[in-house]
Each structure stands twice: as structure tokens, then as C-alpha cells.
């Protein structure tokens, strides 16, 4: 059987933000927020994107939707068995395609316009894409509210009357309004309380099953990502350093940065032992990245070669990609080896 074409294929994506200096706003350099990132998303799957803040996760998400203009790269979206490179389209041509890909944001407080009612907020994308109007529009909004677990009687309320979890439901209903295929969820549960976070994660999973949604799920909580993602990509200073099926990545990391991230997660119970790999220093500045492997100043396994040579992004085992010179040799520890469950 031939492999199905992925829903989304991103190739060599770059986003450089110019650094402007002085009165004439001369370009003095570039923040390489995203620097040659490639991945794909199969229909109906969830790809987790993790990494420290500033690593470029949000920028990838926004570029994929062309909410900001990428500097370079290919973004191929498959719709009705036709693949379109979004980068090859003019803004005008892009508009009808936009309804297929939507975004959910981290902050349920700032991402909703306080002057708009729930009805206005959820109907906005439907109106923009001329998908319904009048009574039909209102019915559709009511239906969406039910789908995400909001009471329809709150149709004409303003966002401030809702809790954080309910606001996030409003944001999800808005994202679903145009029947999208792909949803970029940028830290959708990071600002929520634990008990509410679980509600929203369950809702996102239910919606995925019901509507066959595909998620690019950005998060920094590795427990949350393990729970929701089929595959996980790890980002560091604008580049992917590792990508693999979730279980594989957590059990057998092939990049020292992934190993360190996993070891930094707090333990889940007091009697568990966890071996910490303490990373030196902090994430590099993407305006002045280090030479060679960007991770070398913090890496416990770094050798001379790492300072000079950029490691290649390659498939180290089927479906498992990594970019470390020594991915094949290093015996890195996964969750099972870092944590020792309590003796019972």
C-alpha cells in the first residue's frame, strides 16, 4: 500500500526577524527564530512541539498558518486530495484556504476581544468565510457552544463573565467554527489550573476523534505532551533537534537536549528517584547562536567537533529523527532509566 500523503508537510521553513538599529532603522542582524525546520503531520494525528521558551515554537505555529510571513520554505497542505503550497500563493488566493487551518491560543484572557459577545466571537470566522448568516449562523454558533461544553444561554455574554477554562472553550469553539482540518494549539492549557487542564485536554481529544482533526500541539509541559501527542518534535534555538513517536522519544531519546529536558521534569510522587542532568547556563540567543551545534555550550557530551560542525538532521531509526553528531553512539537515558519508581 502506498503511504498516504500527509495533511501538512513543512520543508526548510525559516523565519528571520530583522534587528533594526538606530534612527534609519538599518538592519543590523537577524533573529533566526526558525531556521530550517521540516516535519509533516498525518491526518488525524497530534504532533507535539516542545522546547524552552524562545526556542521558536510559536513562530513555527504562526508561520504554518501564514499568520506571519515565513522568510523561506514550503508549507504544503493537502485538501480534497490536492496538495497546495501555501507559500506559493498570494495573500488573496490564500484567503479561501485559511478556514482549513485555525489556531487556539495560550492566554484565554487576552486572546478574546472583551467588547465582543460569545456570539460575535464565535461567528466572526464564519462570517469572514461567508459560511452562514442570519438564523443559520446563530444556530451554528449554538451548536458549537454545545460541542465544546458551554451553555447556550450564555450566547450574549462577554468574555469577562467566564472563568479561564470556559474562555478556553470559547477559543476552541471559534477555532472549530469553520470546520478546519488542522488546528495549531499554542500552549492551550498552560495557563489553566490542573483540574481544568484535564477537562480541556479531554475535550481536545474528543473533538479530534469526532471530527478527525489534526493538531500541532505546542507545549512546554512534557507530561501533557506525552499524554496527548502521537509524535513529538523537540526544538532548540530555532531548529528541530529530535522528532519521534511519543513512546519512542520518551523511552529512547537520541539527542542530549531531549534527555536533559526529560530529566528536568519534577517527579510524580515523593518516593520516586530521579536522576537530574543539570544543564549549564541558559538557552542561546537566536540573534547570536553559538557555532557548530547550537547546544554545545550546555551539552555534557560535547566534543571538539561539536564546536565547529553543524550536526545533520537525519533519520537515526525508522521514524526517529535527530540532529546530534553522536545520536547513533550515545546511550542516553529515557524516562524509564532516569526515574526509579518507589520500591513497593
Amino acid at each position: 500500500m502506498p503511504e498516504a500523503t500527509p495533511l501538512l508537510r513543512v520543508e526548510h521553513l525559516k523565519k528571520y526577524f530583522p534587528i533594526e538599529k538606530g534612527f534609519l532603522r538599518r538592519v543590523a542582524g537577524h533573529v533566526k527564530a526558525v531556521d530550517d525546520v521540516s516535519f509533516f503531520l498525518d491526518e488525524g494525528e497530534t504532533l507535539g512541539l516542545v522546547g524552552e521558551s524562545g526556542s521558536g515554537k510559536t513562530t513555527v505555529g504562526r508561520c504554518v498558518l501564514r499568520a506571519i510571513e515565513p522568510t523561506e520554505g514550503k508549507i504544503e497542505l493537502r485538501l480534497d486530495d490536492r496538495t497546495t503550497d501555501l507559500m506559493a500563493l498570494e495573500r488573496k488566493e490564500l484567503r479561501p484556504l485559511r478556514r482549513n487551518a485555525q489556531m487556539i491560543f495560550q492566554d484565554p484572557y487576552s486572546s478574546l476581544d472583551p467588547r465582543m459577545t460569545v456570539l460575535d466571537i464565535i461567528s466572526e470566522p464564519i462570517k469572514v468565510h461567508r459560511m452562514a448568516s442570519g438564523a443559520e449562523l446563530e444556530d451554528r454558533v449554538k451548536h458549537l457552544m454545545e460541542v465544546v461544553g458551554l451553555e447556550v444561554k450564555y450566547l450574549r455574554r462577554y468574555p469577562h463573565a467566564f472563568s479561564g477554562g470556559q474562555r478556553q472553550r470559547i477559543g476552541i469553539a471559534r477555532a472549530l467554527a469553520t470546520n478546519p482540518k488542522l488546528i495549531v494549539a499554542d500552549e492551550p492549557v498552560s495557563a489553566l489550573d490542573v483540574s481544568i487542564q484535564a477537562q480541556i485536554l479531554n475535550l481536545l481529544q474528543d473533538l479530534q476523534n469526532e471530527f478527525g482533526l489534526t493538531y500541532l500541539f505546542i507545549a512546554h509541559d512534557l507530561g501533557v505532551v506525552e499524554h496527548i501527542a502521537n509524535r513529538v518534535a523537540v526544538m532548540y534555538v530555532g531548529r528541530l533537534v529530535e522528532l519521534a513517536p511519543t513512546e519512542e522519544l520518551y523511552a529512547n531519546p537520541r539527542h542530549p537536549y531531549t534527555e536533559a529536558l526529560l530529566s528536568a521534569v519534577p517527579k510524580t510522587e515523593p518516593d520516586e528517584e530521579r536522576e537530574r542532568i543539570v544543564l549549564k547556563g541558559e538557552i542561546a540567543n537566536p540573534a547570536h547562536p553559538p557555532s557548530g551545534c547550537y547546544f554545545h555550550p550546555r551539552c555534557n557530551y560535547a566534543q571538539d567537533r561539536c564546536r565547529e560542525e553543524t550536526p545533520l538532521w537525519r533519520e537515526v531509526s525508522p521514524g526517529h529523527f535527530a540532529a546530534c553528531h553522536f545520536s547513533e553512539e550515545l546511550e542516553l537515558r529515557g524516562v524509564g532509566e532516569i526515574t526509579t519508581p518507589p520500591a513497593t
Partner: peptide, 9 residues
Amino acid sequence: SMPKMGHKQ
């Protein structure tokens, strides 16, 4: 309600 790394539900 907390997802626990290494104990996927």
C-alpha cells in the same frame, strides 16, 4: 487529574 510523565493514561 494530573498527567504523569512515564505513566500514560
